[in-house]
Amino acid sequence: MTTRIDRRFAALRAESRAGLVTFLTAGDPDAETSLAILRALPQAGADVVELGMPFTDPMADGPAIQASSQRALKTGQTLRKTLAMVRTFRAGDDATPIVLMGYYNPIYIYGVDRFLVDAREAGVDGLIVVDLPPEEDEELCLPALKAGLNFIRLATPTTDDRRLPAVLANTSGFVYYVSITGITGSAAPDTGKVTGAVARIKRHTALPVCVGFGVRTAEHARAIAEGADGVVVGSALVDAVRASLDDEGRATRATVTAVTGLVSALAAGVRGARRVAAE
């Protein structure tokens, strides 16, 4: 079956450009503002949205996303509320793919079967669960695929050619290439190496390959977009949220536009890329 993710990447391929994948944490800095940001993202140039499910212990994330999770949890965000947020968004936008990204425990506690039904019903298209490697596919990946959701896997510089087939086996939607060994928001990746790595993954799969971790500027996004099917930006956007808050950490009138302004610039960067043969 095709999902909104498949259709979106097919459309991007037809336009021969890379996509912009934007991350925001659900409920950061509060539920209402977060929904306003989510609704404004497609118009600002986001092709795919990754919506972070906040977790107390985000072990693969750097300080920016840790802090955004904390802000969201502090205002009472839960997985149930995150699903409701997707449902509300979906009522007004039936095309932009939404990928939920996070850690396994909140899903496990919600109940895997119930979660898959509710996520699909809310209009979620795919899942990225950081702490579920292929070795734990029976937990969520296989049931998710069965339920008609994409399960998007991270490939990293430590995923060698021997291991790649195992990582790709049950991956669908797209492959998320983590461009550095490290936590989110760390040092910028070397674009030359990234292009080579994307080519290496493409030798093993026909799926689109999106690249993330450390992409902060339009210029950077443009450079990555030359060799990849999509560019993921996360920490820079949650930093923009943080920088817009008042002294008490509350949203201001500038919060939504701080994010959409950066997204527009990143989208222009991605769209300005001269694409090398990434197919």
Binding site: M59, P133, T159, D160, V178
Partner: peptide, 20 residues
Amino acid sequence: ERGHFGIFGGRFVAETLMPL
């Protein structure tokens, strides 16, 4: 062989760490 004691244990880590 997969590190399970009954339902407990396992290898719930990010892909970067899995090869290690």
